[in-house]
Design a protein around this nucleic acid. Structure first.
Length: 408
DNA sequence: ATGGGTCCT
DNA sequence: AGGACCC
């Protein structure tokens, strides 16, 4: 609980360098950002041109960017990859929760089932050849002594999930939940506390972890992202440690200057490990994906359209011309898709608040074309009851189940 | 796959 | 209200 371990490591006030340069003058700040955008647009345009000619666009450092902006006074603020983002991803979440609740399951191969599906399994099971999501009957074929726990009641998972987010929130309020087992944490505002010689080595893996990467790392950018992300790796470690201490749950983390890269990289070394990626490695990260579909933000519908356009790999998306994309997507989306393919993502970490809705859906077969459902009919009563129950559990006294039955 | 979720039109 | 995305 609390942040004791964290605070004890915090550096003395005067040795703490300030990271996010606060501009006193709003006007100046605005102009700077505007100029910055122009230059970035220019650069992106150039990179696309380069691609059209079959040349691989090179990473443009912030030093170079500042130089380009040098005719203006705003060029003096060199902060480019200003943010530091951590993506936290719990290892086989449901299975871990069950193992914490019943430690005797720890060393057994464990599968979590919902209906006929094994939705996840622990690492013991995985090491014995059981895949992530399989039909129960297939899983049992591979591993007859697989132990199953029913995971269709999500209440415990929700409890652990909010506890995990709460740990992250004890570091900074800027936490975005994604499903039950993932969190984005924007640590930009606190990462400065971890920039110091004490923390100058990178904690955990660097993307493309080879011995060289650790030593040869110069500072090709110069905006401070090297230091911030390095510090971020220590903060990520702290967060993971604290999650483990308070909940008994292990997780992976990815550290990057944007959400996309942080997420892509967090699962790179599993389980219970973490990975940092630097801006100049964005291309390598993206190249490590094959299908454009595996870019978060490109879902099945978008991917189908891309396939129509004969674009299915990340590289093909990188190479696609904006005008081609524009035939099927609006301008914003086209630009966004191309950005994603390069590992560019300006998306903000948005604070997750209280859940916006509590829902319950039953899938039932259509028997015939039906215009309206009879809500008073018996078939709906069970669902109605369960929903009431759910609301009761999760909203102890507030909110009456009044406008809740919004069927259709 | 299924059953929650969120955000954007 | 529907459709896109996410796990």
């Amino acid at each position: 609980m609390g942040t004791k371990a964290f605070n004890s490591k915090v550096l003395k006030e005067e040795s703490r360098p300030s990271i996010v340069q606060r501009m006193e003058n709003q006007e100046r700040q605005k102009k700077f950002e505007q100029k910055q955008k122009e230059v970035e647009k220019e650069i992106r345009q150039e990179q696309r041109e380069a691609l059209k000619q079959g040349i691989r666009p090179k990473f443009v450092t912030n030093k170079e960017k500042s130089l380009r902006m040098a005719e203006d006074e705003w060029a003096l603020i060199p902060d480019q990859h200003q943010r530091t983002i951590v993506h936290i991803d719990v290892d086989c979440f449901y299975a871990q929760v069950e193992m914490v609740r019943d430690p005797s399951l720890r060393d057994k191969p464990l599968g979590i089932k919902q209906k006929n599906l094994m939705v996840t399994s622990n690492y013991v099971a995985r090491s014995m050849g059981v895949k992530k999501s399989m039909w129960i009957k297939d899983a049992v074929k591979i591993l007859p002594n697989l132990v199953f726990v029913d995971g269709s009641d999500l209440t415990h998972y929700r409890q652990f999930s909010t506890e995990i987010s709460a740990v992250a929130q004890s570091f900074t309020p800027n936490v975005e939940r994604l499903g039950l087992d993932e969190n984005y944490v924007d640590i930009t505002d606190i990462v400065g506390d971890y920039i110091s010689p004490e923390y100058s080595a990178i904690e955990g893996h660097v993307f493309g972890d080879k011995e060289e990467d650790r030593k040869v790392l110069g500072d090709p950018c110069g905006c401070g992202c090297l230091q911030r992300l390095t510090a971020g790796s220590h903060l990520a470690k702290k967060i993971r440690q604290q999650i483990l201490e308070t909940t008994g749950i292990t997780c992976c983390a990815g550290v990057a200057h944007n959400k996309l890269l942080a997420k892509l990289v967090s699962g790179y070394y599993k389980p219970n490990q973490q990975t940092v990626v630097f801006p100049w490695q964005a291309h390598d990260v993206m190249e490590s994906l094959k299908q454009a579909r595996s870019i978060p933000g490109i879902g099945s519908t978008t991917f189908k359209i891309l396939e129509d356009l004969n674009i299915s790999t990340v590289q093909e998306l990188q190479n696609a011309s904006l005008s081609t994309l524009h035939t099927r997507f609006d301008e914003e989306t086209s630009k966004r898709l191309k950005d994603l393919s390069y590992g560019i993502d300006e998306g903000l970490v948005r604070k997750s608040g209280k859940p916006q809705s509590i829902g319950l859906e039953d899938a039932f077969k259509k028997t015939s074309k039906q215009k309206s459902w009879d809500l008073t009919s018996q078939t709906h009563q069970p669902a109605k009851g369960r929903l009431k129950q759910k609301v009761k559990e999760r909203k102890p006294q507030r909110l009456k189940p009044k406008a809740l039955l919004n069927l259709m």
